[in-house]
C-alpha cells in the first residue's frame, strides 16, 4: 500500500507497479473485495487520500467553471457554497448513501465505477462535465459521458488517473431526483438530472439506471426547451416529455425492479423536474 502525496507521484506509482489497485474512498472497492474479489499476489494498493490537490474544488469565475478534484468527497459537495454553484451535483451528492459513505466516497470513484445507477455520474452527464485524465504518458480531456462505455466499464487505461472534473457554471434551474425503495442509503431504480441553461436557452436531461450507461435524451430536451423558452403549453408538453424520456430509456428487469417500472418512473421524474423548474422560475420572476 502506498500513499503518494502528489498527483505526479501517483502517476509514477501507477506506471511503475504493473499490478495495482487504486483506492479513493474505498466505498465501492472494499465492497468488491469483501465479495470475493481477492487481492492478487504482489498487488500494490495506491491510495489517493493523501493528495491535497485531488481533494479540493476551485472556482474559476472568469472561465465560468468549477474544477472538482477527483478525490473530493460527497460531503464536500453538499456544503455551502458549492451547493449554490452546482445545485444538481449537490442534490445528487445528498442522495448518496449515508453520512459515513458521503464522508468517504468520492466523485472520482463514482465516475470510475461507471455504474448506470451512479448518482453523481448522472448529474455530471447532465452538466456535460469534462474529465481531466492523466498518466505519465500525457494528459487527455474527455467528456464524462464518453469516459463511461458500459455498465461498470470505462475507457480508462490501467495507468490513468482521473485528476479532476470540470463543470460549467450556468444560470438556470438544476435538479436531481431519484427513486429508491427506501428513504435513504439506496441504489436508485431510476434517476433523472436536469440542467437548464437560461443564457443558451438549452436544457439537458440525463437518465440514470435505465440503460447500460447514463443516457441523454435529446428529444425530451427539445420538448423541455420549448416549454421553458418557446412558450409551448404545459399540459400538452408534459405527456410528450414523458413519452420522449421513456423512449430514450433502455431499462432491464432485474432483482431490484422491472424494466416497465423504471421506464415509467423516469418519465414521472422528468416531468416533476420540469414542474420544479417552472415553479422556481415563477418564484424568481
Amino acid at each position: 500500500m502506498i500513499s503518494p502525496q502528489t498527483v505526479d507521484d501517483a502517476l509514477d506509482a501507477l506506471s511503475d507497479t504493473p499490478v495495482h489497485r487504486l483506492l479513493a474512498g474505498g466505498t465501492d472497492e472494499m465492497v468488491k473485495l469483501n465479495h470475493g474479489a481477492q487481492l492478487r499476489q504482489f498487488e500494490t494498493v495506491i491510495s489517493l487520500s493523501r493528495i491535497p490537490e485531488l481533494s479540493m474544488w476551485t472556482l474559476d469565475t472568469a472561465g465560468r467553471q468549477i474544477t472538482i478534484g477527483a478525490a473530493v468527497s460527497w460531503s464536500q459537495l453538499t456544503e455551502a457554497p458549492f451547493v449554490e454553484h452546482v445545485p444538481v451535483l449537490a442534490q445528487a451528492a445528498r442522495t448518496v448513501g449515508s453520512p459515513q459513505i458521503r464522508n468517504a466516497g468520492t466523485i472520482g470513484g463514482n465516475v470510475a465505477t461507471a455504474s448506470p445507477a451512479g448518482d453523481g455520474l448522472c448529474a455530471l452527464v447532465a452538466l456535460d462535465a469534462m474529465a481531466t485524465v492523466r498518466s505519465t504518458r500525457g494528459t487527455r480531456r474527455v467528456r464524462v459521458a464518453e469516459l463511461t462505455t458500459g455498465p461498470k466499464r470505462t475507457n480508462l487505461e490501467p495507468d490513468e488517473l482521473i485528476v479532476s472534473l470540470d463543470v460549467p457554471l450556468t444560470h438556470g434551474f438544476q435538479g436531481y431526483t431519484k427513486v429508491g425503495v427506501r428513504n435513504a442509503m439506496v441504489i436508485s431504480l431510476a434517476g433523472v438530472a436536469l440542467v437548464v441553461d437560461d443564457d443558451r436557452q438549452s436544457v439537458s436531461f440525463a437518465l440514470g439506471s435505465v440503460g447500460p450507461t447514463i443516457l441523454r435524451s435529446p428529444a425530451a430536451e427539445t420538448v423541455a426547451a420549448n416549454v421553458l423558452f418557446g412558450g409551448t403549453h404545459l399540459g400538452d408538453a408534459m405527456s410528450q416529455l414523458a413519452a420522449a424520456i421513456r423512449k430514450t430509456a433502455r431499462p432491464i428487469d432485474d432483482h431490484r425492479s422491472t424494466a416497465a417500472y423504471r421506464r415509467h418512473a423516469v418519465g414521472v421524474l422528468a416531468t416533476r423536474l420540469i414542474e420544479r423548474a417552472l415553479i422556481s422560475r415563477g418564484a424568481s420572476q
Binding site: 445528498r94 431526483t177 427513486v179 429508491g180 428513504n183 435513504a184 436508485s188
Partner: peptide, 16 residues
C-alpha cells in the same frame, strides 16, 4: 425530505 416518500431522493412534492 426524510419525511416524504422517496426521502433523500427528493422524489415527491407535496402535491404528489
Amino acid at each position: 425530505p426524510f419525511g416524504r416518500p422517496g426521502g433523500a431522493g427528493l422524489t415527491s412534492d407535496a402535491g404528489n
